[in-house]
């Protein structure tokens, strides 16, 4: 159960809710998706692009993007890449293990701003995970949008996330899906190249487009530039930024990017605000 003793105390931003792992799926060699159910209380309502702080007992806490369906009901999904430390523990949890969750936090994609126009989602590597809820939200109200394009790049075909779902998406006539890898193994018949190379030819109208971008920062830097080259207005390009986070609630100061707190002002920001910052070193 959740904490607290002293009756006079306010709820603290550091209070956790317990969630149990109901399913664990290995996505790629270093990435797994956990499905979490609350031990008590209702499901965690979130907006696409938001994140939670997930705590592995005795080990530590990390910020994780939510990768589930925002209309999907009871389970909280996180797609986690093992980069050491807490993520190493989290990706090795099994059904029945309990974690602590705080959140959801942050400003999300605000997908509905794309209604009536085209939407382009550009994902690099694990960046597909926080974009998945956005795409699912769009597909749930598909008629409200015009053309919808998903551009996805990753290192090798073995690193492709949500492969089954991608195939289903590819099969839809109302969704353009284009995938590329950095290195193609023998027998690879798909595209090779950074995801930026997919932008000049993708089927969207820049003048009506809302672009949502997530991936490693160098990738987002060049994707932003490529989208601008194609004529998408800067304020219609949104990026999800990542910085060190200890609290997730705007108190610890770690995630500051100039005057922006990535946890509270972001993690999603407009490219008009970010463009200059992306090209500066060590800010």
């Amino acid at each position: 159960m959740t904490a607290t003793t002293a009756t006079s105390q306010h709820a603290s931003a550091f209070d956790l809710r317990e969630f149990r792992v109901t399913q664990r799926r290995q996505d790629t060699r270093d990435t797994a998706t956990l499905s979490l159910a609350p031990l008590s209380g209702g499901p965690l309502d979130f907006r696409p692009g938001q994140f939670t702080m997930v705590y592995a007992f005795g080990v530590g806490e990390v910020p994780l993007s939510i990768s589930g369906d925002p209309a999907g009901g009871k389970l909280l999904l996180h797609t986690i890449r093992d980069v050491g430390g807490v993520t190493h523990t989290l990706t090795r949890l099994r059904r029945g293990d309990v974690v602590g969750v705080r959140g959801p936090y942050g400003h999300g994609w605000d997908v509905t701003d794309g209604r009536g126009g085209d939407v382009v989602l550009v994902a690099g590597g694990i960046g597909l995970a926080p974009l998945r809820p956005a795409l699912l939200q769009i597909l749930a109200r598909r008629s409200e949008y015009k053309r919808v394009v998903l551009l996805y790049g990753t290192r090798t075909p073995d690193d492709v996330l949500f492969a089954d779902e991608l195939e289903r998406w590819r099969g839809r006539f109302d969704l353009e899906v284009d995938v590329t890898v950095d290195y193609g193994p023998p027998q690879w018949r798909g595209k090779v190249g950074l995801v930026t190379s997919l932008i000049p030819r993708a089927g969207f109208d820049p003048s009506t487009t809302l672009a949502l971008v997530c991936g490693p920062e160098p990738m987002m830097r060049y994707v932003g530039a490529a989208l601008v080259d194609r004529g998408v207005p800067r304020r219609r390009i949104r990026l999800s930024m990542e910085r060190a986070m200890d609290c997730g609630v705007g108190l610890c100061g770690h995630c500051q990017l100039r005057e922006l707190f990535v946890c509270v002002d972001g993690p999603v920001f407009g490219y008009d605000r970010l463009e200059r910052l992306l090209w500066l070193r060590e800010v």
């Binding site: 290195y183 193609g184 193994p185 023998p186 027998q187 018949r189 595209k191 090779v192 190249g193």
Partner: peptide, 20 residues
């Protein structure tokens, strides 16, 4: 689409680029 490939012993034909 045309694949640009390089043969690597033990790995076979590595696709290093594609032309659209």
């Amino acid at each position: 689409r045309v694949s640009i490939e390089m043969h690597v012993p033990g790995r076979g034909a590595q696709v290093v680029d594609t032309v659209e």
